[in-house]
Design a protein around this nucleic acid. Sequence first.
DNA 1: GGAGTTAAGCGTCACTAAAT
DNA 2: ATTTAGTGACGCTTAACTCC
Length: 280
Amino acid sequence: MVEENGNHDSDPLDSKGISVTCVQSVIQPNQQSVIQSATGNIQPTVLTKGNVILVSKPNSVIQTPQGSLQTLQVVVEAHGSDDEDSLSPQNNIKKRRDILSHSPSRRKIENNLNTGEIFPKIESSGSDCDSNLDSELSSHSISVSSHYQSVLPNEPLHLPSQNEDVQGLSTITMTTTGSTTGGTILHYAGQDGQFFVPGEIVVMQNTNNDTTNTVLPEDQAKKREIRLLKNREAARECRRKKKEYIKCLENRVAVLENQNKALIDELKSLKELYCSQKTE
DNA sequence: GGAGTTAAGCGTCACTAAAT
DNA sequence: ATTTAGTGACGCTTAACTCC
């Protein structure tokens, strides 16, 4: 709630979102004071010169033994790490952007795919249901470099080399047998299993030997879903903190400007006093 | 009222540092 | 080495605003 501190090491926002911070001297009392926040908490605090009073609630008040009251603005400041992060080497940023420019967003890829009408359009509305569908679709699609092979009924189905151990594709030898209306019956070679596939069959063949995401197990999709959910919440929290940080910086600017103005006025009056005493 | 612009917010991806 | 949390960047949507 209230912190009096002289160094710059404290975290601006603790894990519970309570602002605890310190900035350079905004208020410099040199006697014992009572800090009273708007919530009514009273903490006797000794303030030495150069320290700072920060409150997380607006309209808090400082009360000195002399009885003078001072309404405070909320001032919260993050420690230097944020600024340091933003000052990372230029080539580092360039590198990142380079990578990003060569790695278009998933949505973009989806749009490209959608124009080919291979997949149903994926709506990104953020609902759980949609994100399920989203994750499932992206889980089961092969990489962008995959190509597609159309198979017509009664035609032999050409799969990747059977020597390749491509999970879910080459390990299953299939032949198309007699087509039924609007679909094809597929048989697993050497097994009794068979299933009906309505419409034209499209085989997605992975060309880069990446076997890991050909078919993702259910728990992998679930993991992804959890990761996305967590990241979504993390992003929300991150934005909230950022907003708060910017607000606090703006408040600090206002306070420092006021202080600067007061100091200029004080200097001016002292100069006048000095001049008048000198002329006497 | 429709078109264009802008700012804010969101979800996602990629990356990093810290924790395990 | 792997996992996790935090964050910058990107693309998208939407609301508010301005101009014609």
